[in-house]
Design a protein around this nucleic acid. Structure first.
Lengths: 133, 133
DNA sequence: ATAAGGCTTCCAGATACTGGAAGGTCAATA
DNA sequence: TATTGACCTTCCAGTATCTGGAAGCCTTAT
């Protein structure tokens, strides 16, 4: 099938598929006589794998490693688990950061009356000294 | 003071201060005879404001608006509050996304025995069909 | 005189795409 | 047959937010 069909079946845009090829995440697709890329069902499966991994927040570099592990029949599940757990830890960290941000921000917004007067605790909070070094 | 001192007092690197100047987030610093940028305490205060806003996750574009509001004595606190609340909503959305990712991933890792055998539910989960179209 | 450290500019890279332009190809229709 | 519209191709540039590094000038101290 052509790239458009592969895109449809994998939920990755044609543009992005070409991009993945350009950075070496996937092997270059074979071409028909007219120069169009062609994809097999197996190729689409690979694309779907990539889509799933990316939607779980794995970086492209991580996905590259996961693809290697996927294709490597002798892989140890410990390797995969280590990658996944490191990723969970990173995601947890990010969630914590965002929650702290959110709490601070929400606190400021709650103290802001939000009318047409110029005094505003949010602005004052941003201008004022906070706990950083 | 020179850019190095301004950096120290604002917790923004000299490199980043120059970058902010280059994109027009801050007005170009005045220069001494030798071409060095000089910063006043007021400039540093502005930089600190920027640092706080950025650390709360506001985009540079948002920060630019917040700076305008900060400098505008006739601002309505409603404007600031609207910006902040939109940001809280965006952060909440992001947190939700990350939590869903995390839960899926944690589920997969829990089901992975993580030893030297090759079968691995994480890989299988990524390869398998999921609920997306 | 020289060395260390701070300052300057400019270019490039990282991340992960996305948009658009210019142009070739294919299938169907008038 | 000519044309239209949907695909496909490549290449360049832009998004967001810095960060690193090179080449070179300025200041200060020894």
């Amino acid at each position: 099938m052509n790239i458009g069909q592969a895109a449809k079946h994998s939920n990755i845009s044609a543009k992005t598929i070409r991009y993945y090829e350009s950075i070496g995440l996937i092997v270059p697709a074979s071409r028909t006589d007219n120069g169009y890329r062609t994809y097999s069902d197996k190729d689409v499966q690979t694309l779907r794998f990539i889509h799933h991994a990316r939607s779980l927040g794995f970086s492209v570099k991580d996905v590259s490693m996961l693809l290697d592990l996927w294709r490597n029949q002798k892989r140890a599940s410990a390797d995969v688990k280590a990658l996944a757990m490191a990723h969970v830890a990173a995601v947890d960290h990010k969630i914590g950061e965002l929650q702290r941000m959110r709490d601070t921000l929400l606190d400021l917004t709650h103290r802001c009356h939000g009318d047409d007067r110029p005094d505003c605790p949010i602005i004052e909070g941003l201008a004022g000294k906070t706990a950083d070094a």
